[in-house]
């Protein structure tokens, strides 16, 4: 995923500072972002708001490439941000990359 020109890549943390099958909460001026790490060391970033009732996805259980919201157990696909059927909704995705063991997130510049 390439960031548009108005975005900038910022270092978040080292990959191993995110627990395996877990996440870290990243506070940004534009809102909270949840950064997830799967068992295969893939990293994903979503807006930390479940499309259902705004539950903090960063606090959910990660399994496969899915996170289960802690409030009402909606399952959100980490790759697409979309809720799994029969629920309908979508959490915003953010471009995220791993470079040399560090996690980088693309954020909009001011």
């Amino acid at each position: 995923m390439n960031a548009p020109a108005t975005q900038q890549w910022l270092r978040v943390c080292a990959v191993n500072e995110i627990p395996l099958l877990g996440s870290r909460l990243v506070e940004c001026p534009s809102g909270n972002i949840a950064v997830f790490r799967t068992a295969e060391d893939n990293v994903f970033a979503l807006l930390d708001r479940c499309p259902h009732k705004a539950g903090p996805l960063s606090q959910g259980i990660v399994h496969g490439e899915t996170v289960t919201c802690p409030l009402h157990s909606w399952n959100i696909d980490l790759k697409s941000g979309e809720a799994k059927a029969p629920d309908v909704g979508c959490a915003r995705r953010y471009p995220v990359e791993v470079r040399d063991g560090d996690v980088f997130l693309a954020l909009a510049s001011a």
Partner: peptide, 14 residues
């Protein structure tokens, strides 16, 4: 420890 500490990110210009 990490569980309880959020990471703060501030883009340049903010």
């Amino acid at each position: 420890k990490q569980e309880y500490i959020p990471i703060k990110l501030i883009p340049a210009g903010e």
